[in-house]
């Protein structure tokens, strides 16, 4: 699967952009938090697309955000 790029996103309607990112994020999150993957992905999709693209390319920043999201969910 080719990497998702800003230009690929820009070619899609806004409502499809988040969906495209979510389809990439979900399997990565599912590997780490199987039970919470749907909720964590939904939370992270509220972040700006430009930052989400960086997270898809950087496992460290993605995992940091995942842990932040889990902490928020557990406090919620």
């Amino acid at each position: 699967q080719e990497p998702l790029t800003a230009s690929m996103l820009a070619a899609a309607p806004l409502h499809e952009q988040k969906q495209m990112i979510g389809e990439r994020l979900y399997p990565l999150i599912h590997d780490v938090h199987t039970q919470l993957a749907g909720k964590i992905t939904g939370m992270l999709l509220e972040i700006d697309n430009s930052e989400l693209l960086l997270m898809l390319e950087s496992p460290e920043s993605l995992h940091a955000k995942i842990e932040e999201a889990v902490a928020v969910l557990q406090a919620h």
């Binding site: 806004l14 409502h15 988040k18 969906q19 979510g22 389809e23 909720k39 992905t41 939904g42 919620h76």
Partner: peptide, 22 residues
Amino acid sequence: GSSINWPPEFHPGVPWKGLQNI
């Protein structure tokens, strides 16, 4: 509103409900 349904969950192949807030 109620926070019980927050966050909008994402599931592959299913349109994400969170888009309603954008």
